[in-house]
Amino acid sequence: MEYNGGSVVAMIGKDCVAIASDLRLGQQSVGVAMNFDKVFPVNDKLYYGLPGLATDVYTLREQLRFRVNMYRMKEEREITPKTFTHLVSSTLYEKRFGPYFIEPVVAGLPSPTELDPHPKPFISTMDTIGCITTPKDFAVAGTASNKLFGVAEGLWEPDLEPEDLFETISQTLLNAVDRDALSGWGAIVHVITHDKVITRQLRARMD
């Protein structure tokens, strides 16, 4: 985890979710790249972040892309955030005794169905072997996770509108990574709403 550094945070708002990450890729204390995105889309209602060992970020992303595409072709529908969480979890547990060094964070808006016409925004997080937690407020992971917990606990409040959620998650991420030597070097935020995804790169401290 501490080899490459990096952090991800996700938050629930009112009919929206947000997920954000820093952009640093390091080799221990040396910074290598400032364009290393750790948050990826599954579809326009579902994103996930993979902080941890960078080689596993790629491997797991490719593995998940493959499995989601297989799901899409077999089921002829989009995967729901909950199902995707279990897909990630079982992918991680497959490597129970030689794990991927990744703590994923999933954030998505489930589409309304007949059974559940008003689904709630969804976030979840896992440990390196796929043990799932589904918080009602926010999820954090990565080298700045303890700092993220502190700031998020102080700033987050229920039922934030998309713009307020954007401000909350951005301030949480920026102030947490500024106190972490292994995270930072830029940041990116995605706010997922029912009609669009707002993606913004943040201006951050570059030291």
Partner: peptide, 10 residues
Amino acid sequence: LDYLGTKADI
């Protein structure tokens, strides 16, 4: 690229 398979496009 490093021996772990880390890739950076820089």
